[in-house]
Amino acid sequence: MALEAAARPRAPATLLRRILHGNGIWPAVPALLYLFVFLALPMLTLLAFGFVTIDRGRVVGDTWTLDHLKAALSDELVWRLMWRSFWVAAVSSLLTLILAYPVAYLFAETKGIWRTLILVAVISPLLTSALVRAYAWLVILGGRRGILNQTLLSLGIVDQPLRILNTDWAVLIGMTQIHLPFMILPLLAVLAERDRRLEEASLNLGASQTGTFFRVVVPMSVPAIFAGLALVFAISYTNFIVPQLLGGGSYSTLAVQVYEQTIVVLDWTRGAVLATILLTTCFAFVMGIVAFGNRLARWNEATT
């Protein structure tokens, strides 16, 4: 009987019901398959392309080789670019933290319309194209005609136009502003919903507000701080739009090189190798940030 039932072709309605059955993996299967085909396999291809030789989008030869990876790793330029990518991302992440924390704190302290306005100020840039915001900085920082220089010159604050565009400064300013919402949002959630009784206790026991802020509020938000730092570091490290537009034609980072090798130079092998290096080092740095954050959080718990 059972065998007979199993052998009978299953009615489509039954299958559909099983797929929609609340407890199974079925509803996720299409998405999992989709990601396997359009994410996992492409990622493997990207990885593999670094170990073969490619000419005009075709794999030539049938041997695997480590030569391309070795060549990239012994190239001083690659290390120099990686170092620049790293420090720009690191400095920009710290700047976003310094600028984001007060906003998130203010949000938690305010009520009503101000809360909504802060939220709009944070979310609206997030939904605006990063390209549009990079263009805004291009206009603000650019040359003598740039809005910043126009203003500074007409106010008599400087008598020579400042040279910001096409320097590290422009890249740092652009990245920090563009990634600021990604740092504010995790902090916002944590600070707005925090338990305020500890602060009350701290104040009642005679601690100053500043002391309470640094010794109660900030330590409590350490996990959110490091989640934000890891996220902003990763998106800054891999951003190639901002360095290209605000850093100028001769400014390069590891991410910019990946773009140029793949799209401009059309050296796909090198593009694949550099992309793999970019992704690997990015994960390593992010894991370092997360590990450091976890240690700090544990240390906090142990000392308070």
Binding site: P42, T238, F240, Y259, T262, W268, G271
Partner: peptide, 27 residues
Amino acid sequence: AANAFLLSPQMMPGMVIGIASLFFGAY
């Protein structure tokens, strides 16, 4: 594990997804 895989694209920079798709297609 399934959850982690489903959310994994958010760990990937757009550029890497773009290049990987380009290479996969080219293959």
